[in-house]
Each structure stands twice: as structure tokens, then as C-alpha cells.
Write a protein that binds this DNA or RNA. Sequence first.
DNA 1: CAACGTTGGTAAAACGTTTAACCACATAGC
DNA 2: GCTATGTGGTTAAACGTTTTACCAACGTTG
Lengths: 368, 368
Amino acid sequence: MASMRDVAEAAGVSVATVSHVLRGTKRVTPAVGARVRAAAAALGYVPNGQASALRTGRTGVLGVALPDLTNPFVAALLHAVESAARAAGFLVMVHDTENDRALEQAALGRLTALRVDGIVWVPAHDQGGLSPVRTARRAGAGAARRELSLPDVPLVTIDQPVADRDAVFSDHVSGGTLAAAHLKGLGVRRVALLHGASDVTSARARRRGFLAEWDPLTPVWEAQSGFGPELPGAVVRRLRGGGFDAVACANDAVAVGVMRVLERDGVRVPHDVSVVGFDDVPLAALVSPALTTVRQPLAAMGAAAVRLLVERMSDRARAARQVVLPVELVVRGSTAAKGGATDVGKATGKEPIGQRAQTRTEERARGV
Amino acid sequence: MASMRDVAEAAGVSVATVSHVLRGTKRVTPAVGARVRAAAAALGYVPNGQASALRTGRTGVLGVALPDLTNPFVAALLHAVESAARAAGFLVMVHDTENDRALEQAALGRLTALRVDGIVWVPAHDQGGLSPVRTARRAGAGAARRELSLPDVPLVTIDQPVADRDAVFSDHVSGGTLAAAHLKGLGVRRVALLHGASDVTSARARRRGFLAEWDPLTPVWEAQSGFGPELPGAVVRRLRGGGFDAVACANDAVAVGVMRVLERDGVRVPHDVSVVGFDDVPLAALVSPALTTVRQPLAAMGAAAVRLLVERMSDRARAARQVVLPVELVVRGSTAAKGGATDVGKATGKEPIGQRAQTRTEERARGV
DNA sequence: CAACGTTGGTAAAACGTTTAACCACATAGC
DNA sequence: GCTATGTGGTTAAACGTTTTACCAACGTTG
């Protein structure tokens, strides 16, 4: 593969001149410029990124560590991040961590070894960092769990905070509140609340938001459901027991799992029971009935993550910042007023986003 | 960030020794080894991948160029490739090409500039390479379309061949045949065949396989559907016209789109019309009724791609090779015998993979 | 004890860029 | 004509590894 030296020789100039021409870092006579460019093109010269990275200390690469690429939400998030990174001139290095703590540590290590300019980390579990909404509460909680050693590289987490690092969130609390308010408005009284797992920050925040809005006197049946469509046996039994008007789910995958269980028992959605999801993955609009859910602003999250990284590259000492992004309720066919005669067939037609509620955009800085 | 030199000084040895200790490339006295390792740990030393890549010429990185990360099949494929790459010791650099020819060219360029050790390319469109099944036919066809200039790097394409390069395929032809045979066995007479687009090699192969199995005397209604769930208006009108027993679709997303259209018109699947997809993305098992489809062996495809790259790294001159991997028919609830009283509710229960048919595994080499 | 492999370590030259420092030369100003 | 002032280009020193060649010291052996 042709090197800069080859180009220099072919053009009859020094390597320094070649570099200057190709990067436009110094004025040259038109004649020389043309000669260099011609030589480079003729040789099919492609600059060696490794070498320039070594020299300049910048690779133009962002690392992304993800818990599980088979999860459609995670895949969509990767798309958002890759898109934003590319727009900012970065390539993206991706590492699946398979929800495994050891692999997460390995991923961070390998990415820093490659000297990526920054890392976007979507942690699998709660990292003990303070959540933006309970800053004041239980400071120091979660210290029991040993922390991962974080590399000295610009790093931003998504959805699970980590101490003294930049982070991007959806407003999960408001998301929970929106779901609760929507169900309340439909006349739902008895609700089952499936939160995925207690060691996931976002799931806890959603639950908190939901319960804050829900009438404290009305009973809520809660259970941990995990985050996939295959529900735990205990949850399935509970669902089949009936006795509720609506199910609020940890995410869309769980919601689909719930709908399958209900359908199998002949329970009609939304006529007998309303179901609401979370995330708004592509799947949500395609199942039948289409899923009412809370949409996470993926593109904005990716953009915010990249923006935070870029900012930190130019100011490594800046205080950690958390960006909270607004979610919106997307009403489709899986929820309907209690006793109302909503036509399911119609409701599942062409993406009937009837009502949208949106939380405020919020951004704040926290000191170190 | 600590460099090898810092470690050497701290341990009182030369950098060469540090390198030897850390890579185990030469014997050292236990005392020295321990001292070096201790110093490295104390300083939090992480070797600089850029520098070693520059020196050795290997980066330990594979590039992946994908047409569209929002496509669940593509996302699943990325997962398979990343998994296989990681198992083989590589990290993965991902670049979305947004189905755009110029972006594809840019992606290949940027990846080679970073000196990745190999590239997995999933082209968006037919690249004019000879498909494995029509080798003899129309040699030179497609020459009209200007070809992308390919970098001089180990490169393997997936699903669309390119001249003189390694490639990995699912056996799309057999996939089409399996679908046709399945429908025939169910007593289907009048079938609508939605192939995605004619400039996509795999879609053409599926169609060919389907028609080869189908009774040449029975009419087949064909149309181009694209590859997403939103069907073109012409296709929708045709579907609503009725007059067929089954729809064979370009992929699962299209199949879901078809089911939505049919459902809206009160046509029951599979009672009135059977629907069969292609790919077996996660979505396929979750819709209702669950989708009968042809499964692509994603994990095997990822593994084969990485294997081909590794092989080529050690023998750059080897003749291009194509690996064809077997697909399997996964029968679920969206297809049923004509006039049969299949209980849909039951069929969509717990992943009823009743029947599986599998094509032969096949691998062959082609000369240059 | 001389000759000799072996063992454990180091010096130094790459790898292909970028960039600060330098220089020859021309042009302009007095 | 002689110094300031650019202008267009080059020299050479990094960046942090890997690896070949070399060397000193140390048994071993005849």
C-alpha cells in the first residue's frame, strides 16, 4: 500500500509538502499542489490512520459498549449514536457486552487500548451513580457493589448514571407519569405494573413516575418481568388470574409478551384490558393491536451523547453533566377507555397517533 | 496516560524488556517479570494500540459496512458478525451506508484509511458480481453500472456477490423452494409472490427458487414490494382485490405489512389466506399469528464471514471463495392447509416450530 | 583453562505520519 | 545596495510500539 513517501517521490517533493498539500495546512504553489494530488491519485494513496493517530493523539473513532445487540431498543440506539457520530466526523467501534460485568470491563479496556477519542457506554445494570431525580436521596447507596474501573477517556453513559461522568437520559420518570395519567384518563382502576428489574435505573425511575401519578388509594399489582417477551412463569400465572383493567409494561417487548398471553386466554386487548409499553421500538407499531407506548427520543439521545463527548474532549476538567431528554406518549390501539366501544380494527389501521404528550426538555449540570 | 517508557523507568529496565514481558515474547527472570508487571499495574498502563498497529501492521479491527441499521435483519446480522469477530479476537468498526452508493464508497475508504484488518460488506444493491447459481448465465451482465473501487484489503460481502471477492450467502434459492413446497403441500393454488426489488441479488434468487418449485401451469401474481412493512399502494390495492390463497413475501417485515392489510379487510390469516415470510427476525415469532418463515442462519453467516477474512489474511493470493449456507423453514401459525380447521389461537401459542426442512450445506470455490 | 553455547537483557532501527524550526530565495522599502 | 519581510519549501524530531541484532555474563565441556 502506497505511503506518503511514495507519493513524495513520485511528485518530486518532500513528505512534509505532501502532508501540507493533502491537509491544506500550508500554502503551496498551484503547480506543486497539482503534482502532489496527481501523484496521490495515481498511486491510490490512502493516508495511514494509525500513523496519524499516533502522531496527533486523535483517532477519529468513538467506542460504543452495548449490553445486547439483539435487543431492538439497543440496536436502534446504536443506529442513533452511529448516525450522530458520523455526522460529527467520527467512526464507531462497537462492542457487545452481553449483559456481563466482566465483558463490560473488558470492552472499556479494549476500547481505551485502541485510543478511541471517546466512549459511549450503555451499562447493563445500575452502576451506583446518582440518578438525576434522586440526587439528594440516599447518597452513597449502591457503594456495596464494587465499581468498574473507568478509563481516563471522555465517557458518557446512557440511561444509567455513573459517578462524576457525563450521562444522557430519557425522562423516564415523566414517561411513567404519562403512562399512568393516560390510563387514569381511560378510567382504569385496577392496574398491573410490570417493571423489568430493580437493578436497572431507568426501570426504577419509570416505576417511580408511574406511582407518583397513580392514586395512592388504588391498589397496584407489581411484579418484575425482565425485559424480554418471554415472561417469567409467576408473571404469566398472575396475568391469567385476571382482575385488572390494564397492564403497564417495562418495555415494548414485555408488552408484546403480555398481549400474547392475554390473547391466548381469549382476553381482548384493548376491550377487556389495556396494555401500554415503553420505548416505541419499530415492533410496537406493527403488532396487532398496535401498541400504545412511551417513545424515547433515540436520535436526540445519540446526538446528545456525541455532543457531550465532543465538549469534554476540549475541556477535560469540566464538571460532569447530565442531559435529560423529553419522552412522548404515543397512543395507538392497545389502550381504550373502560367500557368504551373503541373499534380495534380501525385503531390498528394506519399508525393512529392520536394524542401526544410531551415532557419538558431539561438539562442541568452537577458539580463534582 | 502512561507509556511503555514510564513503565520501563519505574521497573528499572528497558522498554524492550517491558514489551517482552507484557507480550511474553522472550524469557525473563521471574524477578524482572514481576517488577515489570507490578509497575505496569501501578501506573495503570494500557498499551497503545495505535502504536503497535503502526509497527506490526495489524490493528485487530474488522470493519463492517451495513446498508441500514434500522432494519432488524441487518441489526441481527451485525450482532452475528460482532460476536464471531470478538470470538476471533477482533473488534468491530461499524459504518452505516444508508443504502447509498456514495456512502458505501466513503465507508470502504474510511475503513481502509484506518487500516482495518478486513472488511465485511453488506452491499445495498446488486454489485454486478456473479451469483453462485447463475454463474454460467449472462456473464458480464450488469457491467453497465459503474463499479465501486474496492480497497486492497481482505473483504467479504454478504448476500450480494462482487467479482473476485470472497462472499457468504444464505441459500436463497432453496429458501424460495422451501416456501413454495410448503404452500403447495398446504393445497394452495393461487399465490401472490412479493419479491422486494429486482436489483437485489438475494431477492431474485428467492424468486427463482420459488418459481422453480411452483407448478408452471398455476398462475403466480407477482409484484415488487420493497423490503419494509409499508407496502406500495399498488401492492395494497392488489392484495385487497383478493382472489388468492397465500402470499409469499420478500421478508418478514413485508409479511407483517401484508398481514396488517389483510386483517384490516377482515381477511383471516391463516384461515382465508396463508402468509409466509423470509429471514425469521425476532419480530416473526411475536406477531399474531406468528409468522411461518424461512430462517437465515445468521450466526453461521457471521462466523463464515470472519473465517473467510482470517483465511485471506494469511493467503492474500488465494482464489475468491463463496460459502453458501443452508436455510430452514420454520412453520408457525400464519400458514395452514386450505380448508383445514387450524386453530389459530393455539397455533400462536408457544413457538410451535412444527416442521423444519433444511437445505444442504454447500461450499465451493470459484477461480478468478 | 580456553573455547563455546545459552541465557537474560539492551540498543536502536523501523512503522508512516505531523509539525516546529529552519532556510533559500525573491521582493520590497529605504 | 543592503536590510526587513514574506513565500514556498525542506529537515528532522517526535508519537509508542515491536523486533532484530548485539552483548555481557555465566555455566559447561574437552
